[in-house]
């Protein structure tokens, strides 16, 4: 369920702002976001920043979203396979559904997500946009 307080969103800001994931110290596998365990069983990771480039695996649009995104709709959503391997669920910005095609190249862009009321905090993060 969508629960937004500044602390909940602050905790993972590196992930969202900088596409910060993790590299397994033992086998070298890359993850986004950092899991508790690597598929090899190791729990030792070092931070790894992803380049923010990838391929669009699937996409759709959302006409009416969860409450926090009510004013933001409609928007596009996709799953992108990062060039380094892991997959990421992301809003797709600066594009319409008709512009999108499975297999197209996408790049990360820093965007506003939503704000909690007129005087509340504004939340930012990474979205992906087609690399025209």
């Amino acid at each position: 369920m969508f629960r937004s307080t500044p602390i909940i969103r602050w905790r993972k800001y590196q992930e969202r702002y900088n596409l910060m994931g993790a590299k397994c110290e033992k086998c070298g596998k890359l993850h986004y976001p950092q899991p508790a365990l690597c598929t090899c069983g190791s729990s030792k990771f070092i931070a790894h920043k992803f380049k923010g480039e990838g391929t669009l695996l699937s996409f759709t649009d959302i006409g009416s979203g969860p409450e926090a995104y009510a004013e933001h709709a409609p928007y596009c959503l996709g799953i992108i396979q990062l060039s380094e391997g892991p997959k990421i669920t992301s809003q797709l910005s600066d594009c319409k559904l008709e512009d999108l095609k499975i297999g197209m190249q996408m790049i990360a862009t820093f965007r506003k997500f939503y704000s909690s009321g007129e005087k509340g905090a504004i939340y930012y993060g990474t979205k992906f946009t087609p690399k025209w």
């Binding site: 369920m1 969508f2 993972k12 959302i62 979203g65 959503l77 990421i88 997500f113 993060g125």
Partner: peptide, 23 residues
Amino acid sequence: TEQVTTALMGAGDEEVEGFQGAT
């Protein structure tokens, strides 16, 4: 409906999918 949509998103991954506005 928005409240139901929000509640049902509890079945997904809040940080990976919920924050991105997924339904």
